[in-house]
């Protein structure tokens, strides 16, 4: 039984991994755009972006998944999005909002004096961003980003509310067949994934340890 169970769980794992990586792919850049919006000097834009971020961070991701999957049909009579696509949209937007706050914290924590020192040396804004502030921002955001990514690994299990066949869903199918252990066994897969992630992130942090 062990090998067939493992294989079918791996199948669920592929969906989980796909969701994980695609969420990062979209949420990392989108988060940066949102963070610029939330720091905009144009007040209406700043308020709008900050309100959206508040709503999305302040409400359960599970509800957001349900809204994006059923909402367009219920409200506008539109056809449903494919399940995985709906899940991905909800995740990308939700995580982009979390990431945007991390970016914002990172960017705002670079002292004004760093920009000014660059300016006084005749550097352009672009040079200052790429040569001076970027690495300092990266150093500051790696630890909180790491936390979010590990949360994301586990959050992927939420998509089973719209019947996306991810890891836990696959584990649950065995309960109907009278097997309970495959469900608990799924935890091992999450642990391995977050374990790998932790190691990678630690290496990242170590690499940036040479300056303060």
């Amino acid at each position: 039984m062990f090998i067939p169970v493992t294989l079918s769980l791996l199948e669920g794992m592929v969906t989980t991994l796909k969701l994980f990586f695609l969420t990062l792919l979209f949420a990392l850049p989108l988060g940066l755009v949102i963070s610029f919006g939330s720091m905009s000097r144009f007040t209406p834009l700043r308020w709008l972006v900050q309100t959206v971020v508040w709503i999305i961070r302040g409400s359960p991701l599970m509800i957001q998944i349900l809204i994006i999957f059923y909402g367009p049909g219920l409200i506008f009579g539109l056809p449903l999005l494919p399940r995985f696509t709906a899940a991905l949209v909800a995740f990308a937007v939700n995580y982009a909002c979390y990431f945007s706050e991390i970016y914002r914290g990172g960017i705002q924590s670079v002292p004004q004096g760093q920009y000014e020192a660059g300016q006084v040396l005749g550097m352009t804004k672009t040079q200052i961003f790429f040569k001076i502030t970027l690495l300092q921002v990266v150093k500051r955001i790696v630890p909180p980003m790491g936390n979010e990514m590990i949360t994301l690994v586990k959050d992927t299990s939420l998509v089973r509310v719209i019947s996306v066949y991810e890891l836990i869903w696959m584990g649950e199918t065995y309960i109907k067949k009278g097997l309970i252990w495959p469900l608990f066994y799924t935890a091992v897969f999450y642990l391995i994934l977050s374990g790998i992630l932790t190691i990678l992130l630690n290496q990242c942090e170590k690499k940036l340890d040479y300056f303060k």
Binding site: P111, G113, Q114, E116, A117, Q119, V120, G122, M123, T124, I132, L135, Q136, K139, Y210, F211, K212
Partner: peptide, 19 residues
């Protein structure tokens, strides 16, 4: 940006680039 180069500025709190 070019005119700035007539002047140099040493800040009270150094503002060296840490990296």
């Amino acid at each position: 940006r070019e005119k700035r180069l007539h002047f140099g500025l040493v800040f009270q709190n150094f503002n060296l680039f840490p990296q």
